[in-house]
Amino acid sequence: MSVLEFKLSNLSFAIDLSVGHLVHFTVAEEGRVLSPLHRAPWVDDSGAVFEETTPPNVRRLSGDFFCAPFGRNNVEPGPSHGWPANSAWSHMGTDETTDRLTAVFTLKRKVMGATVEKRLTVRSGHPFLYQEHRLCGGEGAISVAHHVMVQMGEGGRLAVSRKALACTPDEALEPDSARGRSVLAYPAEVTDMKSFPLADGGTADLGQFPPGERHEDFVTLVEASPDGTDLPVGWSVASRNAEMDRVLVLKNAAQLPVTMLWMSNGGRDYAPWSGRHTGVLGIEDACASAAGHADSISPNPFNEKGIPTAYALAEGRTAIVRHVIGACSIGQGEGDVEDLSTTDGQITLHFTTGRERTLPFDTHFLAGGRT
């Protein structure tokens, strides 16, 4: 079996070693098991049909995976989202105590000459999965991203840390109407997420998912403080209607200054998607340009504004990317998420009703990285 599962106290997670995807992450809370991540319906379908060019990351599409580079892989030969999301990993060992478990993995291939290491950690009492990726050595520069996918079949709300702008790329994900469709305007740029232009006129609130029916859309959100000075922790919280829970996706805003939203709601008609990939919200925290690796390491509209889109690689240097996924239930009368704050050892959700929810959190974890 290529899937390894790990458990500690009320937490569990599993990784698909064939592609490095996080298969699932669960949190047991007050008699409920919260399972926030998405797994494509064809992954466990032995009769699934694929186009010949379908990369492994789509064939095994699950939960979350680390992209290096993000998107188009057009600097060195390789599939979209890079070898970390498309090729085999080795389990190097697990360090476990009564209150902490860390599993360590190494990518069997190299990326731009760099060795890639994955560390997944859970802590007893913390409803979070702490992820760290290390790119050791190499040369040149690489864009990176996490590719978290949340299943929101009955929709929900998305709250995010303060953003400077939201923009779509020059072209829709599926420009050929015979293969798929989008509802947002391309290209478009706004400073108000609640009023994003639609292709046929009018606007959509990006805080409400989904923004349309039978569509495939992609939006990049830029942190209001991309250097992290005003807001060191960037965050996204998806509140799911059917599941009555909240999915927390946390990052160091300076390390991953953009968040790319992938809205996959039955908007692709070709195999394996075939209109059945619905209600999926991708929350993809990145240091990247959506146009791919070559664009990310060249002058582009983001880095020309001081927003980094790649990590430098060098012999003797280690680039470290840290990221956190968590989950908690929705409490009665809480309302929508309005803000998020951290103090030593905890994180607090602030709601529109004036109520608060505090969760245990390793506040120092996201402060490390990017050396």
Results as ranks from 00 to 15, higher is better:
D200Y: 12
D200Q: 08
G202T: 05
G202C: 02
A204L: 10
D205K: 10
D205S: 08
D205N: 15
D205L: 04
L206I: 12
G207I: 05
G207S: 05
G207T: 07
G207K: 04
G207W: 14
Q208T: 15
Q208D: 07
Q208N: 09
Q208W: 10
F209G: 07
P210H: 13
P210N: 13
P211V: 15
G212T: 11
E213R: 12
E213C: 14
E213Q: 07
E213P: 08
R214P: 04
R214C: 08
H215I: 05
H215Y: 03
E216I: 05
F218Y: 12
F218R: 06
F218L: 15
F218G: 07
V219T: 08
T220I: 06
V222C: 02
V222A: 02
E223S: 13
E223W: 15
E223P: 04
A224R: 07
A224G: 08
A224H: 08
P226V: 14
D227G: 00
D227M: 02
D227S: 02
D227P: 00
G228L: 02
G228T: 00
T229D: 00
T229V: 02
T229S: 04
L231T: 09
L231I: 03
P232D: 03
W235E: 02
W235F: 14
S236N: 15
S236R: 15
A238V: 11
S239C: 05
S239F: 07
A242H: 13
E243D: 11
E243F: 12
M244P: 05
M244H: 15
D245M: 15
D245W: 00
D245L: 15
D245A: 07
R246N: 03
V247I: 00
V247K: 01
L248D: 00
L248W: 06
V249F: 07
V249L: 01
V249E: 10
V249H: 12
L250Q: 00
L250F: 11
L250I: 12
L250D: 01
K251M: 14
N252T: 01
A253P: 04
A253H: 06
A254N: 05
A254Q: 08
Q255D: 00
L256F: 08
P257F: 01
P257T: 01
P257Q: 02
P257D: 03
V258E: 02
V258M: 01
V258L: 06
M260S: 05
L261I: 12
L261Q: 05
W262L: 10
M263C: 12
S264E: 06
S264A: 05
N265P: 09
N265S: 08
G266A: 06
G266K: 13
G267M: 13
G267F: 15
R268Q: 14
R268F: 09
R268D: 07
R268A: 11
D269Y: 14
A271F: 14
A271G: 09
P272K: 11
W273I: 04
W273C: 00
R276C: 04
R276H: 10
R276P: 07
R276W: 13
